[in-house]
Structure formats: structure tokens, C-alpha cells
Simulated scan of single mutants.
Amino acid sequence: MTQTVAQRPTFSPWTDPESVPLIRFEGVSKRFGDFVAVDQVDLSIHAGEFFSLLGASGCGKTTLLRMLAGFETPTSGRIFIDGTDVSAIPPYERPVNMMFQSYALFPHMTVEQNVAFGLKQDGLPKAQIREKVRDVLDLVQMSRFGGRKPHQLSGGQRQRVALARCLAKEPKVLLLDEPLAALDRQLRERTQLELVGIQERVGITFVMVTHDQGEAMTMSSRIAVMNSGCLEQVGTPVEIYEYPGTRFVADFIGAANMFEGVVASDSDDLLVVTCPELESDLTISHGGSVPVGAPVTVMVRPEKMVVQRDRPSEGMNGVKGIVADIAYLGDVSIYHISLPSGRRVEVLRTNLRHTGEQELTWEDEVHLAWHPANAMVLTR
């Protein structure tokens, strides 16, 4: 089985205007009666990506994946794979393979027989089948379990066998529908990195559906956040988290403090936003021109804030409050700060000291501070 290594640190073909996407959705919609599951989606995915479709249940991500697989037909629009319009091509004629959430292994077959099944259907010579089965089982570290049947394997092992079966046919695109949902937390976290490593070694384009934000952030080269059948934003994990394009994305990916306000001034370096609930103006490092008087939302991530007894230093945003609640999570604590307006703000603080040495506790008067560069202005 041919293997290539994707150079993840410098892998960004979507930034190259000369790069031709492997997968293209052009104005794709899917309706079930009066219900619009997917609404006018335009999306490009490049060869070698580990691309995630992320969203809550019912957002359209699985329907989009099923249309790419050929299990659903678009109501309108077209889907291209490697330059070919596959919109009306049946699943078995597309250069894709799909790994289902249930793994769908044949219970009466051994691990080796499960992996070999698709290759036998394609009529490959026995010697070539044996070689491919050996290679992919080595790749997923399941060689010593080749003679076992699915009921003799753990959930994580069955997941590896299902992956090996998909990889054996060397598809151009591997589709994964919530592939780690059945695993427990520790195994899921370990398998995330292993799956990324396998994808980098084989160089096949992976398209994954997930509702787990941490999973998408950990595994993906890029993420498409979906909401009500539409794409809210497409970007790298850093772009999605640090520079959300909409309030929905900011709120869906991680925790966020949102403050409603109105743009008071717009200079070359700073935007000033008046926030009545904070009873003060906020300064934000410039990220784009916004008209004076425009209503906006200012977003600050909890880890970007500092909670302290002293007043903020000059140039920092600041607001006073009282410690209302503390959630101790071991490595970090989450402070819920009640402001004079009644609004609560969430602050995340790394626990660098032992619990008994915490200098802040309930009912303490504190100051919140954050740098202008650590806030984002959202206009929608």
C-alpha cells in the first residue's frame, strides 16, 4: 500500500489560489418535503486534508456527508470529486469509502476476512489481497488480532478494523461519521491523535462529521461550522476559535463572554465600544472598519481575562465585580464574577498553586482585566 506523509505544519493548500480542490460543493441543497436540511452550500476541500463538518444535531452535517457518499441525492446543486460531477453517480462508483459510526463489521468473519472483503469484491489477486491486508493491519496496529472475530475485540479495536477495511481499498476520500462516538473518553482522546497520524501517513483526504468541538479542534486541518443547514464559517481550528466570524460560531466553539454595545469611535489602531451593561467603554485592537453608531457584540474568551485584586494597568480593559462562584477542575478553576449590572462573567484561571494557597475566594471584590488585542468585535 503506497504511503505518503502529509507535512501538517506547512500544509495549507486552501491559501494557494493555484491549488485545485479535490472536492467541491456548488450551491448544494437538500430538502425532505418542506424541511430544508442543507441550504445552498458552497464548499471546497483539498487533497490531503483532514476536514471536519461540525455542528449540533440536525444542522445538516450528516446529510452533507451522505450526499458526498452518494447515499442521498442533492435537491439542487452539484458535487465534484477530482473534477468529476458525481451528483448522480451511485455510491459504489465513487472514489470514496465510508466508515460508519456502528463500524458495520461482519460478525461471522475474522478481522482479516473483514478487511479483505472489499478487495475480493473488486476481484484482486489473492497475493495482492494478502499484502494489502497485512499492510493496513500493521498500519492500525491490529496484525496480531487478524484471526479474531468482532465480538472478541474491544470497541477501540473494532474501530481500528473498520478503519483498516476502508483504507485497504485506497479511496481518494474517506468519510467518517462520528467515528469515535462509541469510545470512552480516555480512549477517544488517545485515538484522536492516532487517527490523525494514520491520515498523515497514508495521505488520503478524510472528511469527518462530529458534534464534538474538542474532537474537531484536535484532529482537523480545517473545520466547517454548520447551523440550520448553512455554513457559518470555514477555517482552521485557530481561525475558528480566535477569530470567529459570527456570534453563533463564537458561542458554539468553546466558552465566550459576550457584551452588547455600540461603536463610539473608530481610529487607525483602536475601536471603542460603549457597553451599557459594563458601565464603561471597551477598547479593541483594530480588526476591520465598523461604522460609528453600529450595534456590535464584543467577545472575550474566559482564558483571555485576568481576575485580580488590583486595578488593571493602563491600556487594559477593566471592570469591577464580586466572586459569585468558583468551579475547581483540578488544572484550572472557573471564576464566575458578578458585575454591578447583575451580569455574570466567566474567567478561567490556571491553578499554579495548591488549592489551600488560592488567594481569591467567594464574595471577594475583584477586577477583571484583558488586553484590547484579546477581544473580538462581531457584527452578526
Rank of each mutant, 00 (worst) to 15 (best):
residue 49 E to I: 03
residue 140 V to G: 03
residue 235 G to A: 04
residue 233 Q to C: 03
residue 213 Q to Y: 12
residue 36 V to F: 06
residue 55 G to R: 11
residue 256 A to P: 02
residue 370 W to R: 04
residue 146 G to H: 13
residue 334 I to H: 15
residue 345 V to P: 05
residue 78 R to K: 15
residue 87 S to C: 09
residue 202 V to L: 02
residue 368 L to C: 07
residue 268 D to H: 12
residue 103 Y to V: 11
residue 183 L to Q: 09
residue 47 A to G: 04
residue 347 V to D: 10
residue 47 A to S: 14
residue 199 Q to V: 02
residue 205 T to V: 04
residue 54 L to I: 08
residue 267 S to I: 03
residue 369 A to G: 13
residue 12 S to Q: 14
residue 94 R to N: 05
residue 98 M to F: 08
residue 277 E to C: 02
residue 3 Q to D: 06
residue 326 I to P: 08
residue 266 D to L: 09
residue 195 L to D: 01
residue 239 E to D: 12
residue 349 R to D: 14
residue 319 V to H: 04
residue 53 L to C: 08
residue 273 V to F: 08
residue 234 V to I: 14
residue 364 D to I: 05
residue 212 D to A: 08
residue 109 M to L: 15
residue 82 D to R: 01
residue 362 W to L: 13
residue 262 V to A: 07
residue 370 W to P: 05
residue 200 E to M: 12
residue 234 V to K: 10
residue 200 E to F: 00
residue 142 M to D: 01
residue 296 V to F: 07
residue 265 S to G: 06
residue 234 V to N: 10
residue 335 Y to V: 11
residue 1 M to A: 10
residue 359 E to V: 14
residue 190 R to L: 04
residue 202 V to D: 07
residue 104 A to G: 11
residue 365 E to I: 06
residue 142 M to Y: 01
residue 14 W to C: 01
residue 335 Y to G: 09
residue 206 F to H: 02
residue 172 K to C: 02
residue 193 L to P: 00
residue 301 R to P: 02
residue 342 G to Q: 03
residue 348 L to T: 15
residue 362 W to Q: 10
residue 329 L to K: 11
residue 217 M to V: 11
residue 173 V to P: 00
residue 280 S to K: 15
residue 357 E to M: 12
residue 377 V to R: 02
residue 234 V to G: 09
residue 251 D to L: 02
residue 128 Q to K: 12
residue 79 I to T: 02
residue 271 L to D: 07
residue 72 E to G: 10
residue 171 P to Q: 01
residue 216 A to E: 05
